[in-house]
């Protein structure tokens, strides 16, 4: 059954991607990309990767699509006909594809439990992490403890993206004069948004602190919390949103999250353990792991929330400026 679902979803993905190649209306392209992203999230669920699915849905279908739409608002929605020859790209793609197909010939069988990938390093994570780390979600254990250095890097990447977007676009100024903007005429939207936003924030907090037990964690929580404020900004206007969460604060928060994460690692250094070794944070190593994971997930959550919202502000600030002109 799972195989059939997999096949159907993959087929739908192929159709979506194929359409994206030929459609010239960029609004449609971006919408199709959102669909592509949602479909891949479904495939991830089907392949047992619930955390990944969660993130893909929040990021690919959520943040990326919003940013793309924001860009389209500034650059126009029609792709012009290309004067390029299409033969060379087609050739490059065919060669690359052929190489990949050649590579698949010796690939381990799909789903076979005896694959090398499941035999060497992974069993430790599956068998020992519930005892060593003390939390049931193995993805969180690996992400936040065994491979915490990757996740520190990932937080730095998000921070670097915020720095990049800020240096390119700058943040909107807080301006009290234009505070009454947004979708004034859409009463239903405003009322519903007011009811829904607190729930989204609540859900973000749940995802943040329940990531040890179920799917979720700092990254997903940060994106969801940012989404709540993005919704707020869309309905009530950017000036109102910057009034609630000022851009300067966001910039500082994005930096703070990275410092919390790296700082947790430095605390371990001072307790004469290796960088990011949480076992020394409490008398009982398992309790120490738990404290460490909560601390770094908090750092991730703060940076991701602040960076995503910062990036959104920067794009939205551009759109507003264009509208005024």
């Amino acid at each position: 059954m799972a195989e059939i679902i997999d096949l159907v979803l993959l087929g739908m993905l192929a159709i979506t991607a194929f359409n994206i190649i030929f459609i010239k209306d960029l609004f449609t392209v971006v919408m199709l990309f959102g669909i592509y992203s949602f479909l891949s999230a479904l495939i991830f669920v089907n392949l047992d990767a619930v955390d990944v699915a969660f993130t893909e849905a929040a990021v690919g279908a959520g943040i990326s699509t919003v940013l793309m739409l924001g860009t389209l608002a500034l650059t126009g929605r029609k792709e012009k006909a290309s004067s390029h020859k299409t033969i060379l790209p087609l050739l490059v793609v065919c060669v690359t594809g052929a190489a990949l197909i050649y590579g698949t010939l010796d690939m381990p069988l799909f789903g076979d439990p005896d694959n090398p990938a499941h035999q060497h390093v992974a069993p430790r994570y599956i068998e020992d992490s519930p005892q060593e780390i003390g939390i049931p979600n193995m993805v969180t254990s690996v992400l936040a403890s065994y491979r915490a250095f990757d996740t520190l890097g990932e937080t730095a990447v998000v921070f670097a993206a915020a720095i990049g977007v800020l240096s390119l676009l700058g943040l909107p100024k807080r301006d009290r004069a234009t505070i009454q903007s947004g979708l004034k005429s859409h009463l239903v939207l405003r009322v519903v948004a007011k009811m829904i936003i607190p729930l989204i924030v609540l859900f973000a907090l749940y995802v943040q602190f329940h990531g040890d037990y179920g799917p979720g964690g700092g990254f997903q929580a940060g994106v969801i919390a940012a989404a709540a404020l993005i919704l707020y900004a869309l309905v009530f206007g950017l000036p109102m949103a910057t009034h609630v969460v000022p851009p300067r604060v966001l910039k500082a928060l994005a930096a703070l999250g990275v410092l919390i994460y790296a700082g947790t690692g430095v605390v371990s250094l001072f307790l004469s353990a290796n960088f990011l070794d949480y076992s020394v944070l409490a008398e009982d190593p398992v309790a120490g792991q738990h404290i460490g994971i909560i601390a770094i997930e908090l750092g991730v959550g703060i940076t991701v929330f602040a960076a995503m919202l910062c990036i959104f502000y920067a794009f939205a600030g551009q759109t507003e400026r264009k509208n005024i002109q």
Partner: peptide
């Protein structure tokens, strides 16, 4: 005290200094 941690410091020093610059 930090002698055994030296290999990791060239990474985490600039990593922590970057957000500090913003602050």
């Amino acid at each position: 005290m930090f002698a055994q941690h030296l290999p990791v410091l060239p990474i985490i020093l600039p990593l922590m200094a970057a957000p500090l610059c913003i602050l």
